[in-house]
Amino acid sequence: MAAIEAADSHVLEEKKLAVTERLQKRQDDRQAELQKKKSEGDAVTRREDVTKFLDNLNEKRQALEDGVALSNQLEKSELVDHFDSLSGTLQKLQRYVSECTAFLPSYEIRQAQETISNLQNQIQEKRDELLPKKKFAFSKAKKTTEKKVEPVKQQKTNDHTDEIDAAVELAACKFVKQTGQTLTKDSSEINQKDVALVDLTDCTIKLFGAPSAIHMFNLKNCRIFSGPVSGSIFIRASTNCVFVLPCQQLRIHNTYDTDFYIHVTSKAIIEDCHRVRFAPYNWKYNTLDSDYQVSGLDKGRNNWDKVDDFNFLAADVASPNWSVLPESERTLSWD
């Protein structure tokens, strides 16, 4: 028995050694990589070095543009290598910019990213011009269609975020495509469920109960009332609405000219919103207290006026995109 254990432990010992060696090696590699990065002369680490970054970027951009211009004079046999080296330089530049994003103001980051994608396009265009792909006899026709298709595609993917994925059915609990209606759901329908409100115009929706989550999309001139939501509420692409809701998290996107009367136990956030105003939750109905118990929301904690704007991250200046709804303009009773 003891012998077996000894043999076992011997084998294990060897395995352990092998594993720790590999781990050590991996750790060393990682450290070496870090060290290398640190010692690279142009690694910028300080806020004051933004100008240095811009100079560096400009210099490299100039060099790349010169490179692109130069390619007209080169022999065809040299072109492949030439373009590869240009792409390589551009990749390095991209990495450099990524590394610097930690301290750069977001404006500079955006500018730098634009510069890079510009350069990428220039290189690609030159390459297409001087080294056309000749897989097919119809290369000319193909090229034009390709070029036309690409921007359209880009456009489409951008729009996608504001579209519904038509392939997927919405959840069972929902109101969709209604105009000029007053619609209600009671607690037996919505308690602990996720609710979807989509494509509504001039509607008043009253949810008497405690849903787990609400997803809302494309609402116009609507008034939405809900009992306490135990999880998150997600609102997109809505205009000229009034929302009266309690929830744990509230996320608002692409929404304009809208008032929120809310009870939020964490913090509300807005992204790509304008002219949205906030006030404390004040809807009342018979079973509100028991619905609060079902939801588990803490009635005593309401951060209705602590709103984070993802498009305006300055800590010391208030975002121009939202405001507190002045008391004189608040609706006090909803009946």
């Binding site: 996608h160 994925d165 392939a167 997927v168 959840a171 989509v198 997600f234």
Partner: peptide, 12 residues
């Protein structure tokens, strides 16, 4: 998994 509206976005 309940955000059926943004699955295309998610996939992309």
């Amino acid at each position: 998994s309940a955000d059926r509206m943004r699955l295309a976005d998610c996939k992309r």
